[in-house]
Each structure stands twice: as structure tokens, then as C-alpha cells.
């Protein structure tokens, strides 16, 4: 069993909140990812058992959404928004400077697996551009120095 008992009971709780079991699939995938960083084949099989669907139905959902992953991930996810409003305020040059700072080409991760750096579509912060999302947190009104400091403070 790869999904822990604790996570399983959280999934059960989520299931109890929906009129149909499968309604809790997205919450469950979020929970599994919080533990494992991604949804492995084994996790997909176990989720499928819990939700009484086929493993491939878990996987088609995982591959559809940007925030779900089917392969192992770096410790931290950093996304610079490069949609139009952010681009108009310098997000692309911010991204390229962060690329050189970390020595990676976005989308890509640092050799030590500490940071994945990528770009993302509009994150609902257009008035505070440029901005980046670091895991679950938004950092807005950035300049390069501020962004670098944030990246440097991310633990291993």
C-alpha cells in the first residue's frame, strides 16, 4: 500500500462530502500529491480501487490538469506567469534571469532536484505583475533581486 492510512481517512472524509463518490477524486489526487509529489502508477491503482473506477480513469484525469503530475517532481515548483499582462510588465526577462540564476532552462529543474522552474498562464495577479507562484504561494510586484532572494530561501 503506497497511500497511507492517514491519507486514506482524509480521502474518505472528502468522499463523504459529495453526493457521488467520484466527486472527491480531485481532492484525493491533491492529497496523494501532497504526500508523494506525484501520482505514481501504484498510487493510481490504489486511487482507482478507492473510487471504484479504472486506473486509466485516474491517469486521464492526472494528465489533463496542469497541477497534477504523473512523474516524480522537484522539491519546489516555481512558475513565473508569462501571460500577456505579466509579459507587458517584464515577466519574460524576469524568467530568463531566474533561469540563469538557477542554471536551468524553463521548464526544467535544478540538478539537485531542489527547484523546478517553469512558466504558467495567467494566475489572477495581473495587476501586480510580474509575479510568480512558488508552490502554493504567490509572490507579486517582483523585481529580479526580490525573486532571486525568494528562490534562494527555498529549502532542500
Amino acid at each position: 500500500m503506497v497511500i497511507s492510512d492517514e491519507t486514506r481517512s482524509k480521502i474518505d472524509e472528502a468522499i463523504s462530502k459529495y453526493p457521488v463518490k467520484r466527486g472527491a477524486l480531485l481532492p484525493a489526487v491533491h492529497l496523494v500529491q501532497a504526500d508523494h509529489g506525484h501520482v505514481s502508477k501504484e498510487c493510481a491503482v490504489e486511487l482507482a480501487e478507492i473510487f471504484e473506477i479504472l486506473p486509466i480513469q485516474v491517469m486521464e484525469v492526472v494528465t489533463f490538469y496542469n497541477m497534477f503530475f504523473d512523474s516524480p517532481q522537484a522539491k519546489h515548483h516555481v512558475y513565473v506567469c508569462t501571460n500577456l499582462p505579466c509579459s507587458l510588465r517584464g515577466s519574460r526577462s524576469l524568467l530568463s534571469q531566474l533561469e540563469s540564476h538557477l542554471g536551468v532552462t524553463a521548464p526544467g529543474e535544478t540538478a539537485d532536484g531542489r527547484i523546478f522552474l517553469g512558466h504558467e498562464e495567467c494566475l489572477g495577479a495581473c495587476g501586480y505583475a510580474p509575479m510568480m507562484r512558488v508552490d502554493d504561494e504567490y509572490h507579486e510586484d517582483l523585481d529580479v533581486e526580490k525573486a532571486k532572494r525568494i528562490l534562494d530561501s527555498l529549502g532542500k
Binding site: 479504472l54 486509466i56 480513469q57 491517469m59 486521464e60 494528465t63 489533463f64
Partner: peptide
């Protein structure tokens, strides 16, 4: 049996 699905989007 549902062996096939569309992945990604």
C-alpha cells in the same frame, strides 16, 4: 474493460 483513454489535452 476500458483499456484506452485520451491522456493530456
Amino acid at each position: 474493460t476500458g483499456e484506452l483513454a485520451i491522456f493530456n489535452r
